Computed example of a mutant assay.
Amino acid sequence: RGPVTADLAADGPHLLVEGPAGSGRTELLRALVASLAAAERPDRLSVVLVDGRDGTGASGGPGDGLRVCTDVPHVTTHLTANDPVRMREFAQSLSAELKRRAELVGRGDFGSRHTGRAVPGRVVAPRESASGAADLDSAPSATIRLRPAAHRRQPERQPSLPRLVVVVDDLDALVSPALGSPGRPAAGSVMRALEAVAREGERLGVHLVAAAGPGGRTAETEPYRLASLRVTLDAPGTGADAPAPGRGLLTLPDGRSTPFQGGRVTGRIPRTATLRPTVVALDWPRMGDPPTRRPVRELGNGPTDLALLASALERAAKEVAATEVPSLL
């Protein structure tokens, strides 16, 4: 009982969610995005979303996919595999980001660099002195000299390098795109960039979280083979007592497995309002009876848990003056 936890940095670096259609893969990815965003500042964690199913649901109808997560301030890029030009641009940008990180990290380790640049929960901007204001500068002799503050040498700041998580829904659609799919010509470019993330991401602080169906050509790809964290979702049932979507098994690199039931973060909260208080006659023999349940009035569907979380994270990011991470597109 209790929450199920997995550390991408310690147990990863990559996670694969595997399950048949209707098992809750997309909803689990949404919950993972919400969990990651709630645990870190947006200037220290960047999330990139890729919808491989061409903007349609599992039954062929329109589906939101991962687009509902774009309000989370940590999400910098969202790509849907229906525009070859945009897909090639994304593949080039992701490859360029890996090269940039390799140059910044060098032969070192991203983990130590990222930990060393940890920032407090609240950032207060330093006070800037007026232009030309004098500042005390100690000299080798006993004489105190004045030097303009503008001439002081400022320490060079290293470029910001947040941890990057690439979340891919329906990896199968990129590995084996359907005939006639608009994104089919550029699917190979995106897959090559994702395979580079799977190979080099651990050293560069880039993680891959992908969802795919069981079997098929996806099992031959590097994102599938190099995923050390795995989630296997159960097939959806048909009976009244069948488990809800999102039930599965989390397997850690050491072989330990934990069954879990994933929650739903995009279900709308029903809005209700209790009717105004009323005064009724109460007989003495009924004084000990439990109170009658008061009727409620439906007000329609309210916001989702994910939307409420995104709003709270946006306010928190503004309070700490978190730096905005640029998009890959």
Rank of each mutant, 00 (worst) to 15 (best):
F90S: 01
L204V: 00
M191Q: 04
R86G: 13
E18C: 07
T258C: 10
V279H: 13
P62E: 09
D172Q: 10
T70A: 12
I269V: 15
K318D: 15
L79E: 02
S93H: 08
D64V: 03
G302I: 03
P185M: 03
G57P: 06
A142L: 07
R145Y: 14
E40H: 12
G121I: 05
G201A: 03
A102I: 00
A273V: 14
P185G: 02
S181D: 15
L36Y: 10
S23A: 15
L282N: 14
E314S: 15
R256W: 13
P253V: 05
P42L: 02
P182H: 09
A21C: 06
P120A: 03
V47C: 05
E220I: 07
T218C: 07
L161V: 00
L282C: 11
G12K: 01
V231D: 07
L32C: 05
P155R: 05
S311P: 12
A125N: 10
L174V: 07
V68R: 08
G108N: 04
P13C: 01
L8R: 00
D170I: 04
E298F: 13
L179H: 14
R30L: 07
L49P: 00
D289A: 09
P326W: 03
T70S: 10
T143K: 10
M87W: 09
L66H: 03
G121N: 12
D135C: 08
R230N: 12
G255C: 08
R117C: 01
R145D: 15
G205S: 00
G19I: 01
P253N: 01
T115H: 15
P177N: 10
G205H: 01
M87E: 12
L66Y: 04
G24D: 02
L8V: 03
D83H: 09
S327A: 11
E27N: 13
L313P: 08
